[in-house]
Amino acid sequence: MSLELTDGRVVWTLPSEVNIYSVAELKTSMNAALVQKRDVVCQMKQVEDFDGAGLQFLMAGREFAAQQNCGFAVSKPGPDVVDALQAMGLSNMIGE
């Protein structure tokens, strides 16, 4: 899990687990990503374990970014993440 500032955007790299067991811990990093009030790219190439709580976490990130008039996109999601997003009608969160 890391935060980087690239091309004026915050690249927020998520760990392998984004699920009910990890979202509480991840909230701190979400705050750190959003507090910069820049567009956020949520880098998900490492994510292997993803569930409904993880999905909600991403949705919340997008919502909070929108409240700050900032963009929020999911980048490089694995097949499980893509499946989950499609199942819930959220494919358009996948950005680059």
Partner: peptide, 14 residues
């Protein structure tokens, strides 16, 4: 959902 401060990631808002 509320605000970022009050958001509880382990509660369900879906």
């Amino acid at each position: 959902l509320g605000t970022m401060e009050t958001f509880d990631p382990e509660a369900c808002y879906i």
